[in-house]
Design a protein around this nucleic acid. Structure first.
Lengths: 328, 328
DNA sequence: CAATGATATGGAATCGATTTCATTTTAGTT
DNA sequence: AACTAAAATGAAATCGATTCCATATCATTG
């Protein structure tokens, strides 16, 4: 591998001049510039970016922490982030935390050892106080989810508004007995969404029964189980606000198998607007989250911060959109 | 940020000794070892890995080139790769090529500039000759797809066997008029799969009509269109082997809407075994690809190569599995 | 007791770039 | 022609580690 030294020698000039040519600095005569260029060409020289990073103390790599990539929400989020990163020639490192506290810290340590320039949390299990101490090593920001008390830039979706909007839609369709499913995990997003639901109910003089709240709702299988749990109730909800399209799909599939009409006997509202939602028959009404938008915004901001911007404790909140199909 | 120099000064020892402690080298007395340890502790010192990389000329980061992350096949593949990378404390960099030749080369240049230690191609648009020249800068291997003539390690799925197996299944179900859909792109995988189909037909004294080959089949929408194309034919296939579950889903959905019975009037075989395949009613028969397995194997091999293994021109081929549901 | 090998430690070179500072050359002004 | 500012160039320091080589101490052995 040719080094800057080799180029300098071949060109009969100093390393300084070669460096100036590489970095397009002024005060190099056109003649020498050409000499250097051809020497670089001849040797197939490219600057060693590790050496550059060490010298300039910059690191144009961003780590993104997500629970797992096979979750479509996160793969779409990272997809959008990578587009922006590539645009600025930044590198994007994938870190799957598997929702583990220790894994998160493991990846944060990469910030400490200067392996990466900044960290975007797309989900987080640790408390803010434990993450905070890493801020001194580089910019940290949150996209989508964030721990309570976060003192760092946050770009997220207005889950409260999403919960409110979805619930209001069900109420407008004439439902007064509305059920709710959620994963059972407690994070800001899930909490806010539930707050939105309760707020909408309250604003319309309604409330939710304890029996109508279903936990551990992650996938289609859970949806199937929840269908039976609903049917087993004496006082049943006539509509369910599920936390995900998968769960909605599970409920709808089981309902069909058992001859329960959707939405007449049971209305089902999904969340996410994943491809399946539009393809099912009946199509699943759902709440669309502008994932790509927050992904792009987060990466844009991160790049600015790494390039020397000042981290402002700013909160950006994007609205969710209701997509009405046939299931409600 | 504390440097090794600071630690040495505080401990009253040389940088050499501190380095020896960091790297667990012998010939350091237990006493000094403790002195160094506590100095490191006191200063909150961690070695700068950029400096380490420069000095040791090692780079424990791997770039994975995929068309796009929102394609579930690739997000699952990368998921598996990241698990292994994390295990060895390697970094995984995501590179979405958007199936663009130039983008591929852009990322390959990162190998040249030493930003990354090795590259895994999960798909590739460039010819082998154009990729070959980058081998001198670090290990390159192919996982899933590869250009003809590749002289690098390949880990892939036996698409020929997959095509054969799927076709044989349809023949066993009594079909003699079998249609085929594919993306229209030409890569080794798609070609091999088609070869498998033709081979199975030939072995049973059958053949395919030009009219029964449908191109530009990427998603559900295309599936819908293809359904009508099939129905418009005078001499119709009674079964279709689609290149993806999405396309199969599109055909099935449109068939149902038009009262065409699946599988009686038209049998549909998918590919990939994506979650929807099992959830649909009727469930989609499909060909399952052990994606996680090739992902893990590829990353294991890459790490060995980066650690100084000898790249052998080896080809690892994993079999596909048939999953029979209700659509065939 | 001298010779030898194992253990411990540090000085200085090195990895491959950028940048400061000093020096020389050129161009412009009076 | 003399003077000054701008342009061009290079020597050497620097980023933060590792490692080669030299040297010093210690224990062991014949």
């Amino acid at each position: 591998m040719a080094t800057i030294e080799d180029v300098a020698r071949l060109a009969g000039l100093s390393r300084t001049t070669v460096s100036r040519v590489i970095n397009n600095h002024p005060y190099v005569s056109e003649e020498k510039r050409q000499t250097v260029r051809s020497a670089m060409e001849q040797l197939g020289y490219v600057p060693n970016s590790i050496a550059q990073r060490l010298r300039t103390q910059t690191n144009e790599t961003v780590a993104v922490l997500i629970p797992r990539l096979s979750n479509p929400f996160f793969s779409h989020l990272v997809d959008a982030m990578e587009d922006i990163a590539a645009l600025y020639r930044f590198q994007l490192i994938i870190c799957q935390t598997k929702s583990g506290k220790e894994r998160e810290i493991l990846y944060l340590d990469w910030l400490k050892t200067r392996q990466i320039g900044g960290v975007i949390f797309a989900s987080s299990e640790n408390d803010w106080q434990d993450i905070k101490r890493y801020q001194q090593y580089g910019p940290i920001l949150f996209c989508n989810e964030y721990p309570p008390g976060t003192e760092a830039p946050i770009i997220h979706l207005d889950q409260l508004q999403g919960g409110y909007m979805g619930t209001q839609h069900l109420i407008e369709r004439g439902h007064t007995k509305i059920g709710y499913c959620y994963s059972g995990r407690q994070n800001t997003n899930i909490r806010d969404r539930f707050k939105g639901l309760k707020l909408a109910l309250k604003d319309h003089g309604l409330s939710i029964k304890e029996d109508w709240i279903f936990k551990d709702a992650y996938d289609t299988k859970d949806g199937g189980r929840i269908y039976y749990e609903i049917m087993a109730l004496k006082d049943r909800p006539t509509a369910v606000f599920t936390g995900s399209d998968e769960v909605a799909l599970g409920i709808i599939a089981e309902a069909r198998r058992n001859g329960t009409h959707v939405p007449k006997e049971l209305a089902v509202l999904g969340f996410d607007d994943q491809p399946i939602a539009g393809l099912m028959d009946p199509g699943i009404s759902t709440v669309y989250q502008p994932v790509k938008d927050i992904g792009k915004m987060a990466m844009e901001l991160m790049i600015q911060l790494i390039r020397g911007g000042h981290p402002v404790q700013q909160i950006t909140e994007l609205p969710l959109h209701l997509i009405v199909r046939a299931s409600t």
